[in-house]
């Protein structure tokens, strides 16, 4: 059975978020944790894009030959696409900062195991 594109995207988004939370919680490797975080962010972005999807809809560019009524009925919803671009940029910069910090920590500890690097090291 072929399911609806929008429904399939929503399922993918949900599974991405759940896999991401699992990875952050239960994998020990810091890089894998960061990949999990990227999954959560991507899942949410996919959800946002899916909101703007309209079956059979057109790109939201208003051409002189269109009537306003026809355009309002057929254009897909533009706002989520604008939002998701911003959100991707934010996600990318956060990932860059995190990976940068991981490089510093790797040089300091010689490992990227979360339980060793981020454990409770006795100091308060």
């Amino acid at each position: 059975m072929i399911i609806d594109t929008q429904l399939a995207s929503l399922f993918t988004a949900a599974s991405l978020i759940i896999i991401g939370i699992f990875a952050v919680g239960f994998l020990d490797n810091l890089i894998k944790k960061v990949i999990g975080l990227a999954f959560i962010g991507d899942g949410v972005n996919l959800f946002l894009v899916t909101l703007g999807y309209k079956p059979g809809g057109i790109v939201y560019i208003y051409l002189p030959s269109m009537t306003v009524e026809w355009f309002a009925q057929n254009a897909s919803y533009p706002l989520p696409f604008a939002l998701v671009l911003t959100s991707i940029v934010i996600g990318a910069s956060t990932l860059a900062v995190m990976l940068g910090i991981i490089i510093v920590l790797y040089k300091k500890h010689g490992t990227i195991s979360a339980s060793k690097v981020l454990g409770d090291n006795g100091e308060e």
């Binding site: 939370i21 952050v24 919680g25 979360a114 339980s115 981020l118 454990g119 409770d120 090291n121 308060e124």
Partner: peptide
Amino acid sequence: DSFNSMIFFVI
């Protein structure tokens, strides 16, 4: 301050 317990409580 261990990260594992923090993320556990957060989830």
